[in-house]
Amino acid sequence: MAGDAEQRIEAYLSRLRERLRGMNQDEVREIVEELRGHIIDKVASAGISGELTAAGVDAALAQLGSPDKLAREYLTDSLLARAEVTRTPFGILKSVFHWASLSVAGFWVLIGSTVGYFFGVVFILVGALKLIHPHTAGLWAFPKGNGDVEWAIRLGFGNVPANGREVLGWWIVPIGWIGGWGLVMLTTYIALWAVRLYRASRKLDRE
């Protein structure tokens, strides 16, 4: 009987461990150990003899909620905490990436923040590379036959394009730096706002 109870605990914890994959290994180990202790204490205090029974374990696990839900809670809470403490794009992307594996909302936030950070970095790069490639880096306009204009951000590798016109000149340096940093900050704030919103909405769902 006790073996059966232990098996149920281990199945729950290994599912949780799997869903927390990607979080810091030490943190995951601590979470799993803490919850194992909680379940054992909970069953022992509810049972008459303090013995681990399968029914007691099931009741304790039900009160904790599904491992998937619990993992989502840990991930969004740890993302928020980490983001509030460090606010680095890499840290945010890493956590949103795990969130994306658990929910559709996370997936869209991942797409949005990847695009935001990508363009932010491109702007910063073009601002920096203009100093090295003064004739080729910058924002370029290419007039097309039908009167439309195609725009391109060029980092300046390669030759001067034949039929294009550089638009901003040296202004690309301050605009690239300020705009790039602005975009990175904006993406960070929007990603954090999305996580907070998601967290708040889930808390209302539960009850």
Binding site: H38, Y74, R82, V85, R206, E207
Partner: peptide, 15 residues
Amino acid sequence: SEGTVYPLLSRLKAL
């Protein structure tokens, strides 16, 4: 809810 308190404790620790 038990499933809320443990993640919250871990967040308070991270903070």
